[in-house]
């Protein structure tokens, strides 16, 4: 007869169930992305995922680890998917290969694999390509609503392998809403003037704001299934809205509105899918609130006064760095433990 150990109520979740939930929650937003911007994003996702799984298998073989449990836990898939959603569409294959290579090898396996990595691997890969290839990483495509056309599947594949004709890009690319804000504010335009641009919708950019809604819906699914807890998204969105509202009330014509910040760039995706990574985020309840709030604050600081238009990736990596410290100072009191007496 086998011995019984506590806890007697075991959770039904496991790593691969959690990761599978994340993948499921990403599907509606990804489909919306393809709907507004063309199927290039699907090409990104499929290529990045295949590459990530191949690399994961190769590194596992090198490290002499069993393939099946690690490849089957979907974590490589989530990393690849988040990376592919962060980079511009129609990125060349070598850019994706560099990012995924850094994410999987330097970001994850050099530290000892899933569970030991102090930084979010997808964001490591993204930041590396963002810094290394500034030209490719600032070529964004406009939503179909503005250009009236998007590149089809065949064209997207051609661009992936560098066979496309870049001459037609001028008609299809545009600044992202955050980019546009940044340059226009630099030219001393007022917010109401900036918002005349056809790039802007009700809250954020045309197309982008609706994708952000779908990320939100995916995030609600994650909350309802218990895959993530509410602390990090709420703290992150709350702190961004709070500081954005403060500056917006002081100078409504010179700073972007809080809702614009919320619905732009990587904020929604970051709040529900990236910052909540169970390995790299803070783990205590109070710690999660501090961690989320820190990211929201850093996003606003980097967007407003940094040298990059969006700051979600940098903010997440900086907060990852602070995670051990946050966890140390927010340890909950064990039941029955008395508060330490001050000498």
């Amino acid at each position: 007869m086998s011995h019984l150990y506590s806890p007697f109520v075991t959770p039904s979740s496991s790593t691969n169930r959690m990761m599978l939930n994340v993948v499921i929650a990403l599907i509606p937003g990804t489909l919306a992305y393809a709907w507004y911007f063309g199927p290039g994003v699907l090409v990104n996702v499929v290529f990045a995922s295949a590459l990530a799984l191949a690399l994961e298998a190769a590194v596992l073989l090198l490290r002499q680890r069993p393939l099946k449990p690690y490849l089957g836990d979907f974590s490589a898939l989530v990393t690849a998917w988040l990376f592919a959603l962060s980079i511009p569409m129609h990125s060349p294959w070598w850019l994706i290969a560099t990012g995924i290579g850094f994410a999987m090898i330097a970001g994850k396996h050099l530290y000892g694999g899933l569970g030991f990595n102090p930084f979010n691997p997808a964001m490591i890969g993204f930041v590396v390509v963002l810094i290394a290839f500034p030209k490719e990483m600032t070529t964004w495509f406009a939503p179909a609503e503005l250009t009236g056309q998007t590149l089809g599947l065949a064209d997207s594949l051609r661009y992936l392998f560098g066979l496309g004709d870049n001459a037609q890009w001028d008609a299809l690319t545009s600044a992202t809403p955050l980019d546009h804000y940044r340059t226009s504010l630099g030219m001393d335009l007022t917010i109401s003037e900036i918002r005349q641009s056809p790039l802007f919708g009700d809250f954020g950019g045309v197309g982008w704001e609706w994708i952000a809604n779908w990320w939100f819906i995916g995030g609600v699914f994650l909350l309802l299934t218990g895959t993530i807890r509410w602390h990090i998204p709420v703290a992150m969105i709350g702190s961004l809205l709070a500081i954005a509202t403060l500056f917006w009330l002081i100078d409504p014509d010179g700073t972007a509105s809080p809702t614009f910040h919320l619905f732009s760039g990587g904020m929604m995706l970051g709040a529900f899918f990236i910052a909540t990574d169970p390995v790299t985020a803070a783990t205590t309840p109070r710690g999660r609130l501090v961690y989320g709030a820190l990211i929201g604050l850093l996003v606003y600081i980097i967007r407003s006064w940094g040298s990059f238009p969006d700051g979600v990736a940098f903010a997440v990596l900086l907060a990852n760095m602070a995670t051990p410290l946050i966890d140390y100072y927010t340890q909950p009191r064990v039941y029955g433990e008395l508060p330490e007496e001050e000498d």
Binding site: T98, V128, I131, A132, F133, E136
Partner: peptide, 11 residues
């Protein structure tokens, strides 16, 4: 060669 800027930068 398009350059791999991160190699020249501090990282």
């Amino acid at each position: 060669y398009g350059g791999f800027l991160i190699a020249v930068l501090p990282p």
